[in-house]
Amino acid sequence: MLEIKNLQVSINNKSILKGLNLSIKPGELHAIMGPNGSGKSTLANVLSGKGGYKISGKLNFEGKDLKEITIEERAKKGIFLAFQYPLEIPGVNTNIFLKTSLNSIRKARGEKEMDTLSFLKLLKEKSSELGIDENFLSRQLNVGFSGGEKKKNEILQMKILDPNFSILDETDSGLDIDALKVIANGVNSSRNKKKSFLVITHYQRLLNYIKPDFVHVLSDGKIVKSGCSELAEELEKTGYKKTN
């Protein structure tokens, strides 16, 4: 599904990713851990198409060169990023935004646009699954949401848009223990043999609830260690120092 080879990324002449290799197959869930500033969010941004980076290396998604396609085309191909810091968009109603977003993606998939009634039904179902109060959805997108509420809203968007490949950038940070479980359930119920995930986290705790197939350590722009879920437990005890 995703094939990254010798990925080099720099911004403003600062080199951030320095030859990263990663391969994710359909149905797999990969976790990435690593110290602050090691380039995890940069990787997520490069995958979802943010501008401003100088990029070289191989970056293929379902056989297509990602470097060639725009942000919204990637979204339409099924790449989704749950932001580490979701943005507040004043004056844009969450509900209406979600419907617009879903319909533009459905259109690209060749599906029929969803009418308001069926959309609201879907929204109700997914938001109650995540314990999101419906009142939130009539508010402006993320404006005044608490940190945890913003993260939940990201996962709600993921559930509604139903992408093939989801990147979760520290979605667990700042969540209380109940919210963490809810979000983990949300992810787990979406897992199947076609859908893949890249979960960026600092805490092994999350991986107790979401079992990864692989765990990688990203340090100074490279993946320095890969293993199965036990690697996360090991890191929790020893920290990153020994992996270098």
Partner: peptide, 27 residues
């Protein structure tokens, strides 16, 4: 960054721009 956020949800640059404009004036 706001444009980027909206575009990752499948809206093109023009649509995202218009949404932000509308939002800016909405209050």
């Amino acid at each position: 960054d706001s444009l980027y956020y909206l575009m990752t949800r499948g809206l093109n640059r023009k649509e995202s721009t218009k949404l932000l404009i509308k939002g800016f004036l909405d209050d």
